[in-house]
Amino acid sequence: MTTRAPLAIDALPSRWPTVAGAVVVLTTITSVLLIAFAWPSVRSSVHDVPIAVAGPATAVDRIRTALEQRAPGAFDITEVADTPTAEQLIRDRKVYGAIDVGSGTPQVIIASAAGTAVAQTLQTMATGFRQNSNAAPSVVVRDLAALPAGDARGAGLAAGALPLVMGGLLAAVLLTRLVRGTGRRVAGALAFAVTGGLAITGILQFWFGSLSGSHLANAGAVALSIAAIALTVLGLESLFGYAGIGIGAVIMMLIGNPLSGTATAPEMLPGRSGALGQLLPPGAGGQLLRSTAFFDGRGATSALTVLLTWATLGVVLCLIGSLRAHRAAAWNPGHAPVRALTLNAQ
């Protein structure tokens, strides 16, 4: 007589409610990803973009009125007396461009390196001035901070934002899996930030031709961005385990990267989301790299502060996690030998 062995539980088909639950989870995740990455682009528009208008008060008032009629709320206008003052504001990254009606020939001054989307908007506006019968027939468009000829559209800088974020996340994941000891993980993150910064800027600057300025300064900007991301995720992991890596991925990838404004400009993102993006490492890193590459470091103070704050926060979280591990080992003698291996490696 032959007896049939019972089927293993793992060999049984999953229940249909389990399949339905998996479908719901996948649909939710896909929808969240779509919203995170597509919403900023779909709802992108010009609002409160800082520009300067140079010239006599009466002429400036006419320009302000014309802009408000054509695009209400699009521009945050700073009135200046002359062209040099407007140009200095552009170089200092206080404004994206300027309309100069103080000289003989009206001109629109742009800075494509500060943001190609805003520069294109100002160029379109200049075209509208030309077509306006009440305006002078010739309006000069002058680029005060042009992108390199090798990448005049700024595609390399925009496309490099996502790999930079992924590099910081990947560094945290690999260091968590392969390296024991808080001190060694932090050292590994900083070392990778330096080598990654040199490699990324080398590719963007010397191969793609997307960056100008000092290679070392650009590498420092990228390195600080990578360090801020990697150290923050390492710190979150030290406190919350693998859930901390998930929290870090949501902050940096799903929130920080789409709201960075690197491909357009923070002021073109919907609502106040662009301002939020500048408080996160991806947005601050993109702004810092633009400053070092095209504006001799001007306008970098805010971005530097944000990145240094996140990097410091990451180190502090790592230290807190390490101290908590020490305390847990002291209160759990049965696990002390296992914990000692980790603590001795620090």
Score class of each variant (00 low, 15 high):
15 R>W: 04
80 V>W: 07
39 W>H: 13
299 G>P: 06
253 M>A: 14
236 L>H: 12
317 L>E: 04
102 G>N: 01
18 T>V: 07
200 I>Q: 15
124 T>S: 15
273 S>K: 00
342 T>S: 13
159 A>T: 03
70 R>H: 06
149 A>D: 15
95 V>I: 04
248 G>I: 06
57 A>K: 02
286 G>R: 03
9 I>Q: 10
12 L>N: 04
66 A>Q: 12
76 D>A: 13
344 N>P: 00
204 L>V: 04
251 I>L: 15
46 V>F: 09
4 R>T: 15
298 R>C: 11
7 L>D: 07
146 A>G: 14
294 F>Q: 02
189 A>E: 08
270 P>E: 10
1 M>N: 07
310 W>I: 06
160 G>E: 11
324 R>I: 04
96 Y>C: 00
200 I>E: 13
11 A>C: 03
344 N>H: 12
269 L>T: 05
321 G>W: 09
250 V>P: 12
81 A>N: 07
38 A>P: 01
193 A>L: 09
202 G>A: 04
196 G>I: 09
314 G>H: 08
266 P>I: 02
71 A>H: 11
17 P>Y: 10
313 L>E: 01
69 Q>R: 07
313 L>P: 01
315 V>N: 08
240 F>C: 08
336 A>F: 05
280 L>V: 07
144 L>K: 06
277 G>K: 02
31 S>I: 11
151 D>E: 04
187 A>I: 13
47 H>P: 08
121 T>C: 00
315 V>Y: 07
122 L>G: 00
196 G>P: 14
98 A>E: 07
123 Q>E: 10
127 T>D: 14
22 A>F: 00
242 Y>T: 14
273 S>V: 03
51 I>P: 13
213 G>C: 08
213 G>S: 11
243 A>G: 12
188 G>M: 11
155 A>V: 08
102 G>C: 00
60 V>A: 11
231 L>Q: 06
296 D>L: 11
195 T>V: 15
300 A>F: 01
43 R>E: 14
79 E>P: 00
193 A>H: 10
82 D>R: 05
63 I>S: 01
54 A>W: 02
320 I>K: 06
225 S>R: 01
314 G>Q: 09
328 A>R: 14
26 L>M: 06
10 D>N: 05
311 A>D: 04
302 S>H: 08
153 R>C: 01
50 P>D: 09
77 I>T: 00
261 G>A: 10
134 N>C: 00
